[in-house]
Structures are given as C-alpha cells and as structure tokens.
Design a binder for these strands. Sequence first.
DNA 1: TATTTTACCTGAGGGC
DNA 2: TGCCCTCAGGTAAAAT
Length: 307
Amino acid sequence: MPELPEVEVVRAGLEPALRGARIVSVTVADERALTRHPGSGAQFEAALTGRTVSAVARRGKFLWMPLDGDADAIVGHLGMSGQMLLRGSGAPPDRHERIRLDVRHPAHGDLAVVFADQRTFGSLAIDPLLPTPDGAPGGRGTSTPTVPAQVAHIARDPLDPAFDDGAFVSAVARSRSAVKRVLLDQTVASGIGNIYADEALWSARVHPDRPAATLATRTARRLLADVRSVLEKALAEGGTSFDAQYVNVNGQAGYFAHSLNAYGRTGAPCPRCGTPIVRVSFTNRSSHYCPRCQRPARLRAAGDAVR
DNA sequence: TATTTTACCTGAGGGC
DNA sequence: TGCCCTCAGGTAAAAT
C-alpha cells in the first residue's frame, strides 16, 4: 500500500521524465479517477492539453505537478492501489488504466504517463496552488512555497526539513485517542499508513492502543525518531511491496517487505524477544505488535522516567 | 469541538 | 469448477 516511501519512489521516478515536459494529449478512460476533480473528464483533458509541467512534488502521500505559471497543479493520490507508470509513446493500455498523459520532454522525447488503479481509491485533479503558511517549500521536489488547495490541510511529513517536531509532540500530548490513531492522522504528521505505524510503534516499544496523552514527552520524541528511521530505511529499499499493487514507475517492486518486524508477521517471532507477534482488529484494519515488548500500559513514573 | 464510524472500490484467496 | 465470504486500507464525509 503506498505510504510515504512508496510515493516518494514514484515521485523521484517521475521527476526526470516530467519536469519541463509539455502535455500533448490527455485521455480519461474512467472518470472515477477524477473524484476529486471538480470538472468532467472532457474538461480535464482540455484544461491540461498544451500545459508544461514545472516540477514533481510530494507531501506525505500526495503528489502534485505544478504547471506553467505556478498558479495550479495536477494533484494525485494513489489511494490503496494507484500506480503512476512511465510508458513509451503509444504503448498498449495497462491493466486498470484510468488516465493517460502523453507528454513531450525536450531531452527524453515522447512518453506516456499512465495512472492505473485497481481499487479506484486514488485520483487525479487540477487544483489551485496556495501559499504555505510558514513560507517554506510546499514539499519534497519543489522549492516554491505553495501547496495545492487539497493538500493544504495536511501536515508536513516527518522527512520534511520544515516539519514541526514541537507541534507533533504537543498533538500527541493533547490527544485522548490511541497513539496509533494519532500516527495515522495526516493533519498531525503526513505520510504514515498502517504498515509504518505498526513498524514505528514496534521500534519504539509502544502499544498501538495506548492513549497518546499518556506518553511522556521523551517517549513521543523517541517515537517520532523511530517513525523517521523506519520511513528512511523503507525509502532506501525502494518501498514495501506485497504484491503487484505497489510498484515504481517502471513496474518494479520494492524490497522493504523483507525488513518488516511486526506488520504482517502474525505468529512469527518478534525479532527482539522471540514472542509471537499478535494481530488485533483496529478501526476496520489490523494492528500487529509484540505483546511482550509493547505493553498496553506502563506505570508512568517508573516506565517513562527511566527510559 | 473532538472523536469515531462509514462509504467508497476491486481482486485475491479460503472454505465448501 | 464455481460460488460466497472476508480482507486489504487512505481519505473525506457523516455521525456521535
């Protein structure tokens, strides 16, 4: 499932092919891929034809491609199963292909960018660019301090140099929700999904259901550090692939699935202590954790003060 | 206001 | 072989 590392792999793959490329034609094969776009498929096609892509940017799991003039951008979200694939000009349709952009790059020639999406949770849209409140660049891949309107309510991601650590720690301290829920809240920190939430919590030895506000400040900071190291390691390995659902722009899978310690390892021994990893239901999905390393509650004075 | 639940969607895989 | 059921889960809207 595409989370921050997977989306960053896609962004980095698209960047050299799209930066400076002119959109020659657009084909919307399935309008369900435009659920966040205010206009019709025909309007989407007409509005983009002839425009030039100036960058490929990302914040959290959102991608966007600013267009000439820097007033608007193509915004994309991969949802559960979305893919952005680079194909040769005239390549046959991909399975679950929803939208195709035919582009002409001054150095790389004619290419096709295919948005394919089995479960149709992902989408593309044209969206105006708004200034960032903090004046810092909107996200990875751009130096311009703007974000698409649809991304404006999302927090920066933990790998963003302008990420506000203090705001994260205070959001954790304020919330009565389970700490895993806070990690998944894109308005607190973006880019974290079910896989990396489980991995970071395992790494920090924090139980997913523990009320966020019960974490000591130093524990919250350690959790944030573990979030970062898990994301960075996954990024270095090309992201996590379980099946054909997540691939880079060339259709290749990532390797991080081999490095998972908790997620998807139900019944397998915890790499730290050997206790079998358990899986529990968590808001229509699953949490995986070590019942020995990640205790549901600790005595605050004894536990957090010491470690 | 803060938090929780639900809808959206398709294909893989298990059970019978 | 084929049908039915469950599961995967990010986001935003709706409900509490």
